[in-house]
């Protein structure tokens, strides 16, 4: 059973210079209960992908897809209203900044109970009961007090827990976590990830973890999609990407992680790609990584296709990296 099935999803925004494509024919699948990681720099389109799945794109955006199904329901065949309802019942999303993701004017309780009401519990007493249960499930103590408080009165980590409580209120089959820990303290980060993974196991809830942090992926996901400039560059099991990335971009992302405990020579710098991610309305011809890629050649002015590499996954590159010895790779 597929939880999520996307074929050639594209999103365009009109600008005064003509339409720009922020997502370019993205395809991916998720199984039930799977943990999928989406990695990329800011501006790579990973958040746009999350919004597109949730149907939260700005009204002027145009979404096209050959196929888009959630929980075996073809979303493209539903009307706007039906789709909104179906997605709200089957998928939830939490954002990067828990403080701004909750309405500052309403109490935690009111916002939680509003969600609960939307999922069919009418009686206020029962709503409150359920709200307490949910806060309990995400590890918030003193739920009675929290329900009466406003978001600004809670810490960031606590707010993110409340967001998660709100997200699981509908018992969704898919939870999209868009950089859920970026705005939090390091110590809180692992707690939140732990909580998400535990909910993933105990509720058989698929988890799409969006982040720019490869290190975070490595411990929690089964499969990773690497995105760049609105395209999927590499899609493979976490293990094989970590051991042996085939796309130069994935390689660069991996090499830019500092490894604690490894010996660093004096003066040795962490690897970083030159330049920055291109503006979406000023994309380079051909391969979008082109100007920044250490392996770029003449060939790269032609757009590469996402192609299958045996015993690995999908890679979009004219010159995929060879399988190599792991220890050699990281010390280069």
């Amino acid at each position: 059973m597929k939880l999520l099935h996307i074929e050639n999803l594209s999103v365009e925004f009109p600008t005064h210079k003509g339409p720009v494509t922020v997502l370019d024919k993205v395809s991916l699948r998720m199984e039930r209960g799977e943990v999928l990681g989406i990695v990329g720099e800011s501006g790579s389109g990973k958040s746009m992908l999350a919004l597109a799945i949730m149907g939260l794109l700005a009204p002027n955006a145009s979404l096209k897809a050959d196929y888009l199904s959630l929980n075996n329901q073809d979303l493209m065949k539903l009307t706007e209203e039906q789709r909104k309802l179906f997605v709200a019942q089957n998928a939830s999303i939490i954002f990067q900044e828990p403080q701004t993701s909750m309405n500052p004017c309403f109490t935690i309780g009111r916002q939680l109970m509003e969600t609960i009401e939307l999922h069919g519990i009418r009686r206020p007493k029962k709503q409150k009961q359920r709200a307490r249960e949910l806060l309990d499930a995400v590890g918030i103590n003193e739920p009675e007090l929290r329900l009466k408080q406003y978001p600004h009165q809670l810490s960031g980590g606590m707010n993110q827990r409340v967001m998660i409580a709100m997200a699981i209120a509908a018992e969704p089959k898919l939870l999209i976590a868009d950089e859920p820990t970026t705005a939090l303290d390091v110590t809180i980060q692992s707690q939140i990830i732990e909580l998400l993974l535990e909910l993933n196991r105990s509720r058989e809830m698929g988890l799409m973890l969006i982040t720019h942090d490869f290190a975070l992926m490595s411990e929690s996901t089964q499969r990773v999609c690497v995105m760049y400039s609105g395209q999927i560059m590499e899609n493979a099991p976490t293990e094989s990407i970590l051991e042996n990335p085939r796309h130069p971009y994935s390689r660069a992302l991996l090499d830019s992680i500092p490894h604690i405990g490894e010996r660093h020579h004096m003066g040795q710098r962490l690897y970083s790609l030159k330049g920055t991610i291109p503006a979406i309305d000023h994309l380079p011809v051909g391969c979008r990584l082109g100007p920044r890629c250490p392996k770029a050649a003449k060939e790269c002015v032609k757009p590469p296709r996402l192609e299958k590499i045996d015993q690995h996954g999908l890679v979009r590159c004219h010159f995929p990296l060879e399988k190599e010895n792991q220890s050699e790779g990281s010390s280069q």
């Binding site: 709200a88 954002f95 993701s101 309405n103």
Partner: peptide, 13 residues
């Protein structure tokens, strides 16, 4: 354009 509006939309409000 605030995030909490997105949250509310995602909830199905």
């Amino acid at each position: 354009s605030a995030d909490y509006i997105l949250t509310a939309k995602a909830k199905g409000v």
